[in-house]
Design a protein around this nucleic acid. Structure first.
Lengths: 88, 88, 88, 88
DNA sequence: ACACAAAGTTCGCGTC
DNA sequence: GACGCGAACTTTGTGT
C-alpha cells in the first residue's frame, strides 16, 4: 500500500500529518496569544497599543542592523565613497 | 514603581512578555513546518501541491462548495465554462 | 561633480529617479484597481470571487491542468477523492 | 443579455475588463522598472544596493511619523505618561 | 464594512 | 546551471 499511483503514499501521508499536527500546535499558540490580549483588555489595557509595542520591539533589532547598512549605502549612492563596484 | 500614571506598569510588562514568549514559540513551530516541507521536497514531493492539500483539508467542505457555487455563477454570467470542463 | 569616487554619481541619481517615478505610476495604477474593486463591491459583486476570476483568466490553461493533475495524483495516493466529486 | 443567472453579466464583464486593463498597465510599468535596473546594471551599478536605496527613500517619510508615535507609545508602555486609556 | 496585520506565493540574487 | 535564501507583492483573516 506504499506506492499507489507512483507516489509513496504512506510517506506523503506521514508528512501531511506531521504538518497538520504542527499547524494545530501553532494555532493553539495563536489562540493563547489572543487570550493574553483579551486578559490584558480585561485589565484595562489598550490592546491596539499593546500590539504596536510588541511589533515595535520585534522590529527594533534588525532595524539597527539595517541602519548600519544604510550608512554605507548612502556613501555608495550619493558620495560614492568606499570599496565599491568590485564586480562591475 | 508599579503604578505610574494610574496604570499598572508591571502588569503591562508581564503581559507583553508573556505575549513575546508565545510569539517565539509560534515562530519555532512555523520553522518546524518549513523544515517538514523542505524534507518532503527532499523526498521528491511537490511542496506547492502539498500546501494545497493541507489547506483543502483545513477548509470546511460546505464553505468550499459555497464559494465554488458563486464562482460558477459568475463564470457562467461571463460565458466562461466552469472548472468542471464537462465538454473538454 | 559627476564622478565622485570613480563612479558616475549623476547617472546613478538619474536611474534612481527614473525608478522612483515609475514606482509612483505603478502605485497610481494599483490604487485605481482598488477603486474598481470598491466600485464593483458597491454594485453588489463579490470581490473575492472577482479576484479569483481575474487570476484564473491570467493563468495559462495548460499550467492549471498540470497542477490539478498532480493534485489529483496526491489526493488519490492519500485515498481522498478528487475535486470532481464523481460519486457525490 | 444583461442579467444571466441573476447577475448583471455586462456590468461584471465591464468591471473585470477594466481591472485586467489596469493590471496590464501595471505590468508594463513593472517591466519598465526591471528594464531600468537592467540598464543600471549594464552601466556598472549594483542593483541590489539600488533597490535598497529606493526602498529606503520610500520608507523615510512615514518612518519619521512612526518615530513620533513610538515615543508616545513607550511613554504609555513604560512610564504610563500622557492621556492614556481613555476607553478602558 | 473597513483597515490593519499575518500568511502564502513569487521573483531575484548568491552560492555550490 | 540548479538550489536555497531572502525580499517584494499579493492575498487572507482579524479586530475595530
Amino acid at each position: 500500500m506504499s506506492d499507489a499511483g507512483g507516489v509513496a503514499a504512506d510517506q506523503l501521508r506521514a508528512f501531511i500529518e506531521r504538518i497538520e499536527r504542527l499547524e494545530e500546535e501553532k494555532k493553539v499558540i495563536a489562540d493563547d496569544i489572543k487570550d493574553v490580549y483579551a486578559e490584558s483588555k480585561g485589565n484595562g489595557f489598550d490592546v491596539k497599543v499593546m500590539r504596536k509595542i510588541v511589533s515595535l520591539r520585534k522590529r527594533k533589532p534588525h532595524e539597527r542592523e539595517e541602519e548600519e547598512a544604510i550608512l554605507d549605502l548612502y556613501l555608495h549612492a550619493l558620495g560614492m565613497a568606499g570599496p565599491v563596484m568590485e564586480d562591475a
